[in-house]
């Protein structure tokens, strides 16, 4: 499957990936509006870890063995059998947070206002995810890896 990988050695921890992730998942898709005016401000669905001199972005791995999906008590989390993308059905998620406890990378976010989780969807509608597209250093790459679990 295709997913986002990180080159830690060239990540400068600028956080633009977080900014563009938020923008892409905002209602207005307008930088100023989405950050300053939208009542339900989207949160970045990936996270930059910074620990001098190390920094790297952590994005959902869309795991072949998705512990979050196995742990989901409502059936809201599913991994697509063809694309391998793990998505959450906002209608079904009740914010029980069991998936958060199951995720090895700590990348599932709590949208507390809505009482639901939020997670990376690889920018479903875009050819290249916004984080990769807007990384100034090519520290994020979108790459395809063979995955036998997909049909």
């Amino acid at each position: 499957m295709k997913t986002v990988y990180v080159k830690e050695e060239v990540c400068i921890g600028c956080g633009l990936c977080e900014v563009y992730c938020r923008l892409e998942h905002s209602r207005s898709k307008d930088l100023i509006k989405s950050f300053k005016r939208e009542s339900q401000q989207p949160m970045p669905l990936l996270r930059v870890e910074r620990r001098e001199p190390i920094s790297f972005a952590v994005t959902c791995r869309h795991c072949a063995e998705p512990h979050c999906v196995y742990a989901c008590i409502t059936g809201a989390l599913q991994r697509d059998r063809e694309s391998g993308i793990v998505t959450v059905d906002g209608e079904k998620c009740i914010g029980c947070w069991t998936c958060i406890l199951a995720c090895p990378f700590g990348v599932i976010r709590q949208e507390k206002g809505k009482g639901k989780i939020a997670k990376c969807d690889l920018c479903l509608a875009k050819k290249i995810p916004a984080c990769v597209d807007n990384c100034p250093n090519e520290a994020l790459v979108y790459a395809e890896v063979q995955d036998e679990t997909l049909s």
Binding site: Y5, K7, F56
Partner: peptide, 15 residues
């Protein structure tokens, strides 16, 4: 690192 960095077998989409 092994989970996040591009594996050698990967086909990188020309970002």
């Amino acid at each position: 690192q092994p989970h996040l960095e591009v594996p050698p077998s990967a086909l990188v989409q020309a970002a």
